[in-house]
Design a binder for these strands. Structure first.
Lengths: 208, 208, 208, 208
DNA sequence: GATGAATGAGCGTTCATTCAT
DNA sequence: TATGAATGAACGCTCATTCAT
């Protein structure tokens, strides 16, 4: 798999024309939903085209390949995520507040782009081995470092328990939080912030 | 997709002959590994056959279809899991001990059959919608009930915090625990029981 | 076997474009010839594609399946045949003239679409048992009734021998007439109308 | 297709052992029935083996190939048929009696070996082009000559109409008679001899 | 931009056949 | 004789992609 990074059609991902209809954006949204619900490899280019009301061949006027669509979805998600997390860390609050904000930002991301997050959850494992998607690993590593710094700082300042390894603690939090994308339904009984509060409550205070 | 449940070849899943070589078992193991690492739909029957050292067509001497292999992998995992969990609940220990055992049993399952668990994690979401895999939802529901009963009993007996909804608490634990299959490597730095202890420590006592 | 009846490509079976080349029609003609000469199940999709000068996969741009091609060939033949026979019966000539016309129309059909008729002769027996081809039996029954009505009317009016069961008489005529497709070659020594005349002469006057 | 003519197993097609069970004969009967009802190429070796209660591979202890079974079925039918027809012609009766006997012998053959006759009807057209089945054409030609001699002799002696070409007359009779195998069911309403009488009555006297 | 026809590689599966046991 | 595992070629079909219009 090799991804041509040329962004066909209108540059910068902006709508094609002033009053026009953003076909690129529509295709990306449709693709994200299908990739999330059916899986990337079970989703055909025709599926995407059908859902968008065009023919399969026409997709190639907007994107170089099916993989390029996946690439754009994941890249947008990860860069946005990293940007948010870096901004939160940059605010230089105390570690507990920072950790809380990281968790809340994660839930907000799931709320805003559940399909993209689901695609990331489901596909990144296999994708990361491919050269074209090496940036996934790079982003993940940078994001992981942010979380680890916060946890370490919290232990150093005495606000977090010192007897726990930060690495598995991070993985514990990360997995619990991001896995919610599999069952969380925007508009369902549990609102996103409520789940965030519940998880933070359990995380901080423990079950006992 | 329709799965013929006939178990071709030797019955009861036992090795074909006394001193013989269990080709069925080998194929199942190979398939589980490939399904886990590449995804079910990206794994071809030829991949499985190649890894097992036979030709693709020969697989059909042992299994009705590629899907039947997936079916057998998942069914075995889920029935075994349910059996273990039910046995633990049946011991009628106090809720905290029971919960600990459930968590430890989960980690043990990941340790013993990491590929099957990974397949379940990655594929069950889309599979559950298919009639032939309805049993996945059935098993999941029965397992969930066991966990919810333990959490509820723990709250009633005062050992678990009463202010937390048991449902999201269950999901929190379940997702954190099962997600470890994505990064846990048997034989790696962290041994399975160590991760279990760490997770239980964090879960019970909280981060603060 | 299930036949999706969607008529892919251009609707109504008409040529795709004004000055265009009717690939659908070509494929159907090629398929009919191969089905007739090699048998349906011995004819591969690649055979058809090769004979049409395209790749096997391209067939599926025009038809849902190999079976859908067979379906269309048979449906067209049978509906046309029934239409002709019904029109002849509707003219309300005397029974002998009507019977003669039915026989001549049958020979004309063989002359015009020998491949389709041969396919019908060779495959309909096994096909009729399949649900997707139930219409074969339906058409056959309606056509049979036309012939039986004519024979019965001829006996009632005294023009046909009254001592013969109409059913085996019908089968005798039908089989003798339609079997000619197996040896009749358009453009051969015996012209179609000549065979029709010969058969009618023998049928009406007898051998003695 | 090349048919090895070696007759595996017991020679001369006789039962394997004195008091034994004739597996060869059983397989041939089963194969004839399946070839007749499903078609030769849609019948798998496994179908035959299943119906006979053995495994597919075991068939090859009795026959060299699937094609060898077809070969034996057709050869037996054709040699028997030719033998009967030649014997009838050899009796040197008057042409009308001889023709009647040929027709009756044909119906008797259908009655006795309907599956073999059906296989011949359905498959011989395509088979005749293959070298290994050239004997089909040879037998057919010898049989045709017998019928043509009888018809010619009948015309010469004034008992048959002189204005009809013998060739199409022969084809007319042959096709009408042999086609009955497609609908004639031994044990049905119409007994074989009754159909023969009906057909002879129609053939000799005509419909008018 | 979009269409629709075509490509070419590959997929899951079937099946006649072989052969060691 | 029969079994059961395996072969290897082929089959119907799918799909990402290309391209002339």
């Amino acid at each position: 798999m090799a991804v041509a990074r040329s962004r066909k059609g209108s540059p910068k991902g902006e709508p094609a024309k002033g009053g026009g209809f953003d076909r690129r954006g529509q295709l990306l949204a449709v693709a994200a939903e299908l990739f999330a619900t059916q899986g990337y490899s079970k989703t055909t280019v025709r599926d995407i085209a059908d859902a968008a009301g065009i023919l399969a061949g026409s997709i190639y006027h907007h994107f170089d390949s099916k993989e390029a669509m996946l690439d754009e979805i994941l890249r947008e998600l990860l860069s946005g995520l990293h940007e948010r997390f870096a901004a939160i860390e940059g605010r230089d609050d105390d570690p507990r507040a920072t950790l809380s904000e990281l968790v809340r930002a994660s839930f907000a991301a799931i709320d805003e782009a559940p399909h993209a997050v689901a695609v990331y959850q489901n596909e990144s494992g296999n994708l990361a081995r491919e050269e074209a998607f090496a940036y996934i690993g790079a982003y993940s590593a940078r994001i992981e470092k942010i979380w680890l710094r916060v946890l370490t700082a919290g232990q150093a300042s005495g606000v977090f328990r010192p007897d726990l390894d930060v690495k598995p603690t991070y993985l514990f939090i990360r997995d619990a939080v991001w896995s919610t994308v599999r069952w969380y339904r925007p508009g369902g009984r549990l609102r996103s912030e409520a789940v965030a509060d519940h998880y933070l409550g359990l995380l901080y205070g423990g079950l006992l």
